[in-house]
């Protein structure tokens, strides 16, 4: 089975590194981006199998990034990284095609299950 590739997007570099190490330890190939523009380019060029996208980013936030990605790719499963208590605010954005919300600092360890399930549905 080919190694699944995940694009990880967050503007906080150290956290990005931690999450990359975690995902790599689960056996994923990890691409990283630190802002929305970069993420969109990577999605176009590399077509990852899933995206983990921070909602709160300067300049272009996660929702805007996702909207732009959905213009040209409607299939990729996307997980949004949220802060505690923010989920409700973003519940409405689910219709943009969000596979799940991952709460920062609380659930990332358990996020593998989420991601695995989403990737299983793909060919």
């Amino acid at each position: 089975m080919p190694v699944k590739r995940i694009l990880l997007v967050d503007d906080e570099l150290e956290l990005l590194k931690a999450m990359r190490i975690r995902l790599a330890s689960w056996g994923y190939d990890v691409l990283t981006a630190t802002n929305g523009q970069e993420a969109i380019q990577l999605v176009r060029k590399e077509v990852p199998d899933a995206i983990i996208l921070d909602i709160k980013m300067p300049e272009m936030d996660g929702i805007e990034t996702l909207k732009r990605i959905r213009h040209f790719n409607k299939e990729i499963p996307v997980f949004m990284l949220t802060a505690y208590g923010d989920e409700e605010r973003f519940e409405k954005t689910r219709k943009l095609g969000i596979s799940g919300f991952i709460q920062k600092g609380n659930e990332f360890e358990n996020a593998s299950e989420f991601v695995r399930v989403a990737l299983k549905g793909q060919k």
């Binding site: 906080e12 150290e14 956290l15 931690a18 999450m19 190490i21 975690r22 330890s25 802060a83 505690y84 920062k104 600092g105 990332f108 360890e109």
Partner: peptide, 23 residues
């Protein structure tokens, strides 16, 4: 709380990585 949480999150992730003996 947001400013406090950001560094905590990073700390938590790295502590878990060490605890899970990934490095």
């Amino acid at each position: 709380s947001h400013e406090l949480r950001t560094p905590l999150t990073t700390m938590k992730e790295f502590a878990s990585i060490i605890s899970d003996e990934i490095p």
